[in-house]
Amino acid sequence: MEMKRRIGSQILASILVNAIYTMKNYPIMLVWTFLSPFSLLLVIFFVSNGTLLGVGIEGALVMSMVLSGISMQGDLSHLRNDMKLQDMVVSSPTSALIYIVGMAISELVYSAPALTVLGILAVLFIHTTIMGAVQIFLVMALMFAFSIALGFMLSTFSSDVIQSWAFSGIVSTFLSTIPPVYYPITYIPLPYRYIAYLSPTTYAAQIAQNAAGYVSVPAGTVVVDWIVLIGVSILILFIAAKKTRWRER
């Protein structure tokens, strides 16, 4: 008795468990996920007397993509290690790819309220061309894929939620504290700027800031930025596909 299995259902399951039911049953999560991208934006806004508002909004958009992967790492690690949910899913018709796609969408659903508000602010305060907007969107999409792949892979390595906090801390320092996302990279004095270039987020920010006209970088540099960003993303996706422990060794 072959049964027709619906991929749509399998994806919906992850979205329900990791986003919809959480928000429905713990409304406080909504407040938190809504506030998180705005905290740094406010600081930047006040400190710069409003001059960096546009850059800050752009930064918050890019950062919310990076945070998706980081919070997915924590969520998946919790569901896997503390609930043994992933064991139940591994021993079911849902494949690793479908599970991760569902979970990735669930992170977007989670940040949907904040993204909506940021989107409105972006339309109001960032003045850019269609091409610029497309570039910003592509950078966001790439950062999302990158951080989701990284988050999923790391979640399969942590054997306990405490360990996963350590992963989160390290990844978030690397991807969100060091890189100049909320302000132009020229604000960082030179020797330290090289440290920032170690993080892919820096390249993403540079592309986005250039696309909206907040910084002006030579066309060649933008091409290099894209190459680095796409290269690193492909590398991480490749490593994640190879190393992720869906079935333990």
Partner: peptide
Amino acid sequence: ARAIPWLTPMETVYSYLLWRGF
């Protein structure tokens, strides 16, 4: 395995069946 604390029993079983493709 633990029943996920923020789900109801109904949501727990229902979502598991969705993962099975129902």
